[in-house]
Amino acid sequence: MSGGPKLNVRVAEVVKVNDLITRFRFVARDGGLLPAFSGGAHTVVEMDDNGTRRLNPYSLMSDPEDRTGYEISVRRDDAGRGGSLYMHRHVRPGMDMVLSHPVNLFPLDNRARKHLFIAGGIGITPFLAMTRQLARFGGRFELHYATRNPALCAYGDSLKAAHGDRVHLYFDEQGDTLPLADLLSRQPLGTHLYCCGPKGMLNWVRSAAATAGWATHAVHFEEFTAPATGAPFAVTLERSGKTLTVGSTQSLLEAMEAAGVDAPYLCRGGACGQCETDVVRCDGRIDHRDHWLTPEDMATNTKIMPCVSRFEGRTLVIDR
């Protein structure tokens, strides 16, 4: 089955963290232990939103040593496709849900002499698991976490309490900027950098690290992004002999699934490469939104990542 075996869980806890963020804890329905994961891993949460099936990836934030449950934090996105609103409005303790096995596309490089974490907003979640993992194994780290203001700084206090001056908080509204260039210039050789946050922050960190001469393979980004909305478009699946319309709040992958086509996936966020599909014919423009395809593949429109990418134009035929 696409996406691999599933985990049958029950919602154990729903906790409002602040105005935008809610935390969910899932436990195994059979009362047993859940599969082990490592800091940086995510799970894909299946939702049945009034007949629309949604599968959204969320970073696991709980202690990787705690196999009695998984925790995620979801930021409400009022302009999103509806997954986060569903989680906030409909998910209640006691509800049965289905999760994917954990997948880690943002792991710690344990060869590093030191780990430097840079988080923006809800991008803090993978670092909650990573810092717990490192605290347990004695790894050296520093966390720099930027949010709009103290009220939106989810888990800032508990991180401070657990890790003291290894944690640095910055509040944009107080004119407090993360001293990125300075930080990058004083890390011992063998430090690895990890960044998770909004797109603007990822780009900022990417270019600052390049300017500072950082080793490319020592810089890691949590790239997966929820599929964005867009204009509806038609697509023909050559092998299945079907033509479908992808709705504006639906991804191409979701449209194929809704039509009963078994398409491969893993991260559903354009990062893992699992859903890569050959394009048979393309008269128009593919809006490539993944972090997987090479610039050449994108430019020639010979491949598409159905979990995030969209299409604009007359004809799109894919090999599925």
């Binding site: 590093a112 990058l184 011992p188 430090t191 500072a212 080793a215 490319t216």
Partner: peptide, 28 residues
């Protein structure tokens, strides 16, 4: 510090051993 560029040149024995020691610190 990170941001340092590393260049090794000469024989394989020297380059390999320098690489081994640099790698051991976590540098890719």
């Amino acid at each position: 510090q990170m941001g340092t560029q590393i260049y090794l040149t000469g024989t394989e024995g020297l380059m390999g051993q320098a690489e081994r020691d640099i790698m051991a610190l976590g540098f890719p």
